[in-house]
Structures are given as C-alpha cells and as structure tokens.
Design a protein around this nucleic acid. Structure first.
Lengths: 209, 209
DNA sequence: AATATGAATGAATACTCATTCATTTTTAGA
DNA sequence: TCTAAAAATGAATGAGTATTCATTCATATT
C-alpha cells in the first residue's frame, strides 16, 4: 500500500515533481513560516528524500523564487479568467474582481500567509520585489482602465480613475492582512460590503444597492 | 546616593542598552530581512560583542518579540498623540490619522519593511499575531468611533461606521504594501488623495474638497 | 587604595541545515 | 529480457549560527 503509493509517486514526471515540491513548499511556509522552513521539511511534506530539492531546483533560493513565480502566475490566471468570464460590462468586471479577491479559495489564510511571507522579504530580495510589483502593477492597471470606462459611461465628476485604482488595490491587499491577523473577527461578507459601499459612493449609477 | 537612585541609574542604563539592541535589530531586519539577520549582525550593528544579545534578552526569539512589541508601542504612542493634538472635531481627528499613516516618518520604507517582516511570520507565531492584532483592533475601534460620530453629525444615510472603519484600516495597510513593493512609483500625495477622495464621497459635508 | 559587583567580551560549544555525491532504483528503448 | 540513462535516495560534509561561560573591564562603595 505504502510501497505502491511511493512507487507511483516516484514514477511521476519531472514537471509534476517540481510542482509537487512547490506545493509542499507553500504548505510548509504556511505552517511553519518561511524562516523555519527547511529543505528537509519540504522533502518530507512531499514524501520524498533529503536531496530531492537540490536535484530539481539546484538551490533553496531557486525553489523559493519559483514558488513565488508560481503563486503570482496562479493568481494572474484566475484574475484573467475572471475578467473574461464576467462579460463585457466594466462594472461587472470590477465587481467580479473584488469578489475574486475575497472568495474563500483565494482569500484563504494559508495562501495569504505565503504571500505575506514573501512580502516580508521584499525589501532585501530584489527578485521577490520584482515579481510582486509586476502583479500589483497589473492589477492596478486593469482596475484603472475599468474605472476609466465606468467614469466615462457615467459621466462622473470629481472622481479620478487613478485614485479609484489606488483605493481598491490597497483595500483588497489590506483586507488580506486582516484575514491573516484577525482570522476570528475577519468576516469576508463585511469586507465585501465595505468595498461595495465604497463603489456605491463613487459610482452610484453602476453600483447602487 | 540613595539606594533607589542607584538602582534607578542601573536599570536606566540597562534599558538604554536594550533599546540600542532593539534599534539595531530593526535596522538589520530592514536591510537584510528577518531571515538572514543573525545575532552577530545585531551585535555588530550596535557596535557590541557576540554574546550581548543573550545577555540582555536571553534568546533571539525574545529579542524579536520585544522588537515587535516596541514597534507596536511606538506606533500606538504616535497614534494617540495625533488623536490628542488634532482638536475635538471627529473629522479633523480622522484626517490627522490618515495623514499620520502616510507621513514620511511613519510611511518609511525601512520601517514598513520591519512591519512586513513580522506580518510575514504571523501565521506561525502566535505572539506576533497577538501583538499585531491588538494594534489593528485598536486602530479599527478608534476609526469606527470617529466614523460613528461623523455619521451622527452629518445625519448620513446608507453609510455604516463599521464599513468605513474596515475600508480605511485596510486601505492604509494596503498603501504601505505599495510603498514597500513599488517605491519608485509610489506617491504619498496620490495615496493621500485617494483616501481623501473616498472620504469626500462618504462624508461630503465633512470632507468636501 | 582595596574590594565588590554588574556589564561586556569573545572563544568554545553544540547544533542546524543546505548541499554534495556515491549508490540504488526506475524507466524506456532495443 | 537486457541495458543505458534518468531519477531518486540518504548518509556525509561543512558552513553558519545561537548559546554558553570563563574571563576581563568599568564603576561604585568602603
């Protein structure tokens, strides 16, 4: 039983194995924190042996870089899928993006812990900074473009798309922090309400209750 | 010299050294990241010898806990001072708090890097979580109380103090992330504008441009 | 001046952990 | 089935680091 499972795992393809190790890395970071995640932990979590990470990733640094890369790509994929699926309407797209960020599958404490683990090292790791910046920039750009469209549609005055983008981007990131720090009191519905209350105020014609 | 004065002087010097080590710790974390800050780094930064941290703090864990404690206390002190100084008007207080969070002395990349370093370990360190939660809770409570006052004063409808508090707390935290991740493009004036644009929309009688 | 006391040093210790590599196991092609 | 290549293992290595502690230093007290 165990032997067959192990054999089955061993026969997994190379890409699959890398992914398996990246998944294990995220789990370890979520559970033990980045500071005390060792390669032995990662290998153990994946049910493989000591040297396995260096075999597939050359070094721990590399593993961590690729883990962050994966995290960012995974996010971006869901982000884009959400954009596509939510029809042509800018307001609908915006609504869908906010909901995505607060959906349990994304706004999940274990996943958020991994994001924060990397954010915590951003200052001293240019590679991390770059990847995180790309993601934030992309998010901000899309939101700003949607806000522009909405502003044009609604002929809103005294609202700048840039400000709306800044406000929304920071709000969603900040809500993740609350989810991480106050898991007991954090309420994703209240969080969603807070964001939409904001949208009602800025774009009343598009987001009235 | 009286006995009390003698011990007072001794504990003062002791306190001074502990503070010196905490300062050194924050500098190291900002520069090298929490992961690669060693006790030798901290001692070196303080211009002291190897064993010094264990002499004053027992362990590295302890040093880090006390560093976070200090960071939180320092923030709270500035927060309360701002509240006091900004007069009796709730809107003025709220304005002052937002400005505090985005003032260069607080919204400084090195300081923010330290906050994020601790936030990055929150999930696996209950002590960190507790300290950070206290701070967030306090912030949120104060903002919610101010928002309530403003809502009553202005007889605002369809705005909940709770939502405003959630929105503002998360926005300011999220803006810190932008400052950390995108130091080149982050603009504290634009950030301030974005927050105040929000306040103008929710509380037009109090925050009109 | 002599002594006592707490502060500080820094070399030694014990331990953790990334990385290496000789060896074994598995896979795939003939 | 056999065999070469690829994948995986896990013991060994060594660099790095928290912690300890015998010793030295500085200062206050007598």
């Amino acid at each position: 039983m165990v032997a067959t499972a192990k054999t089955a795992k061993r026969t997994a393809r190379r890409e699959q194995r890398r992914q398996q190790l990246i998944d294990a890395t995220m789990k370890c970071i979520a559970r033990k924190g980045m500071g005390s995640t060792t390669l032995a932990d990662v290998a153990g979590e994946a049910g493989l042996s000591q040297g396995i990470v260096n075999l597939h990733f050359e070094s721990k640094d590399n593993l961590l870089n690729e883990t962050l890369r994966y995290l960012a790509d995974e996010y971006k994929a869901q982000f884009n899928k959400t954009l596509e699926k939510s029809g042509p309407d800018a307001a609908a797209k915006l609504r869908a993006l906010i909901e995505l960020d607060l959906r349990p599958s994304i706004c999940d404490r274990r996943k958020i812990a991994v994001w924060f683990a990397f954010w915590g090292e951003v200052k001293s790791r240019p590679t991390y900074r770059k990847i995180c910046d790309e993601r934030d920039q992309y998010y901000d750009d899309v939101v700003e473009r949607l806000a522009s469209e909405i502003i044009a549609e609604g002929k809103y005055k005294s609202v700048s798309a840039e400000s709306v983008a800044i406000a929304l981007t920071s709000m969603t990131n900040g809500l993740w922090l609350s989810c991480l720090i106050s898991p007991r009191t954090f309420d994703r519905h209240k969080a969603t309400d807070a964001v939409f209350e904001y949208l009602c105020k800025v774009f009343p014609k598009h987001f009235s209750k």
